[in-house]
Design a protein around this nucleic acid. Structure first.
Lengths: 121, 121
DNA sequence: GTTGTATTCAACCAGGTAGTTGAACGAGGG
DNA sequence: CCCTCGTTCAACTACCTGGTTGAATACAAC
C-alpha cells in the first residue's frame, strides 16, 4: 500500500524548516551548507532534515566533487495531491448531495441506502 | 513547535490511522465509537486522534444528545493543495527552463565548470 | 436518584524526533 | 603528503507523540 510513503511525505512536510527548504529548492538546487545558512541550527541538523526529505522521495542528491547538491523531485507531490483531491471531492459531493436531500425533504425520514455497511480498508 | 496551521494539517495527515479516519469521514459523519470500531486501539486513542484532526481544522464536532458526531471539513484541504501546487509548479517550470538552456547550449561554456568529464547529452 | 452509554481527562510509559557536540570520511589544493 | 572544506556518523539529551488504564463528565432512560 502507498500508505507508508504517503506517511513519509506528509510527515516530512509537517516541519516548517523542511517546508522552507522545499520552497527554496523549488527555486534551484543548493548544497547542504547553502541550505543551512539562513537557519539558526547546525549543519548537521540540516543534513538530518535533508535525509528525511530524501527518504520521503522529495529530494535527491548527486555528487559533484566534495559537494552534494540537493535537487527537488516534483513527482512525489502528485501522490499527495491525488490523495487530498480524492477525499475532498468525496466530501464536497456528499455535502452537495446532503444539501439536495435537505432541500427536497419536507419532514420525512432520511434515506438510508441498504448498501451501507461498515467501512473497510 | 508546529504552531502554524499548515504544519498541523500535514502533521495530522502523517498518521495512517488518521488518514483512514478522514477517508471514512469523507463518506459520511460518524461518532467516536463508530470510528474506533475497526481499529485495534482504545476509544480514548481515537478520541486523541480526533483532537489532532480537529486542531488541524480537518474535522468539526457537534453535539447531539450524548453523541458527538464528527464531520469532515473539506476547506482545509485547499491550504495544502495550494502549497503543494505552488512549489511543484515552480520546480517543474525551473526544470523546463533548465531544459531550454541546455538545448540552446550546444557546445558552449557552462556557468560553473570546475571539472569537465564529457559533454552533457 | 440511579444506572447506562458516549466521550473526555489525567497520569503514565515506550518510542521517535529534532537538536546538540565531537569525530570521521572523501575529495581538492597547498 | 598534509590540510582544509563539505558532509555525514555517533552518542547523547529534551521533548513530542501514540498508546495504555482508570476515573470523571454529560446526557438519557429507568
Amino acid at each position: 500500500m502507498a500508505a507508508d510513503s504517503l506517511s513519509r511525505v506528509f510527515s516530512a512536510l509537517a516541519d516548517p524548516t523542511r517546508r522552507d527548504m522545499v520552497a527554496r529548492l523549488a527555486a534551484g538546487d543548493a548544497t547542504v551548507n547553502e541550505l543551512a545558512d539562513p537557519y539558526d541550527v547546525t549543519v548537521q541538523a540540516v543534513s538530518k532534515h535533508l535525509k528525511v526529505l530524501e527518504d520521503a522521495g522529495l529530494v535527491s542528491r548527486s555528487r559533484e566533487a566534495q559537494r552534494r547538491p540537493v535537487h527537488l523531485e516534483a513527482e512525489v507531490f502528485d501522490l499527495m495531491t491525488r490523495w487530498i483531491e480524492r477525499y475532498r471531492r468525496e466530501a464536497e459531493e456528499r455535502y452537495r448531495r446532503l444539501d439536495d436531500v435537505l432541500r427536497s425533504m419536507p419532514d420525512d425520514v432520511e434515506p438510508t441506502p441498504p448498501t451501507e455497511s461498515g467501512a473497510s480498508t
